[in-house]
């Protein structure tokens, strides 16, 4: 009987320890960026940064300036050009993590093939307008959101998560994709 009691106590202790381990938040859960949700067209204010997405465009090819001439960039997926305005709120901010997050959780970083259309540093009281270029899979075009943060694990910082729900649509309801988008002229950015 005493042995049985011992086994039961041991089992309960093991369960308790497992429960503590499983329910304990990880350091990254305690310290990671705090999401600040918003929608396309409205100004979303995080802790250090305010941003507004004005326009989203889709294209199969992208014409970009390259060595003083225009060059066409192709893709197996889709090009997305997001026009937005950003401003630092309290102090100069450096923004490194700019991602397009599809509805299924695929995360596309800003394309390193197209020339940068948005600076990484932002000043207080000086709104910077620019564009971010992504290369995405076609199924990640609808229902996506734009995530902007200084870094994925900037401790106790906020991350802007802007729902892109006002994308251009074709008559069938899918994203309206143009054949070639010309960024070599400067556009409205």
């Amino acid at each position: 009987m005493r042995v049985l009691m011992g086994v039961v106590v041991l089992g309960v202790a093991a369960l308790l320890c497992y429960g503590l381990q499983a329910s304990k938040p990880r350091p990254v859960d305690l310290a990671r960026t705090v999401p600040v949700a918003g929608r396309q067209g409205e100004t979303v204010r995080g802790r250090f940064l305010a941003g507004r997405v004005d326009k989203v465009e889709f294209a199969r090819n992208l014409k970009v300036p390259f060595d003083r001439e225009a060059r066409t960039l192709t893709t197996d997926g889709l090009w997305v050009v997001v026009t937005l305005e950003l401003e630092a709120m309290r102090q100069p901010v450096v923004l490194y993590r700019r991602t397009w997050n599809g509805p299924s959780g695929l995360t596309f970083h800003e394309s390193d093939r197209a020339p940068a259309g948005l600076p990484t540093g932002f000043m207080v009281g000086q709104a910077s307008r620019g564009r971010l270029v992504f290369e995405i899979r076609p199924e990640a075009a609808s229902g996506a959101s734009l995530h902007l943060s200084r870094d994925w694990i900037s401790r106790f910082d906020s991350e802007l998560r802007i729902d892109l729900d006002a994308i251009p649509r074709d008559p069938a309801g899918g994203p309206d994709v143009v054949d070639t988008l010309d960024l070599s002229l400067g556009g409205d950015a």
Binding site: L73, T74, T75, G77, T107, H109, R113, R137
Partner: peptide, 20 residues
């Protein structure tokens, strides 16, 4: 080096599900 379009980007970031 990325071989698409002859631009020759070094250490390219490869996106999920897109072959290069």
């Amino acid at each position: 080096v990325l071989l698409r379009d002859g631009v020759g980007g070094r250490s390219p970031g490869l996106h999920p599900g897109l072959g290069e």
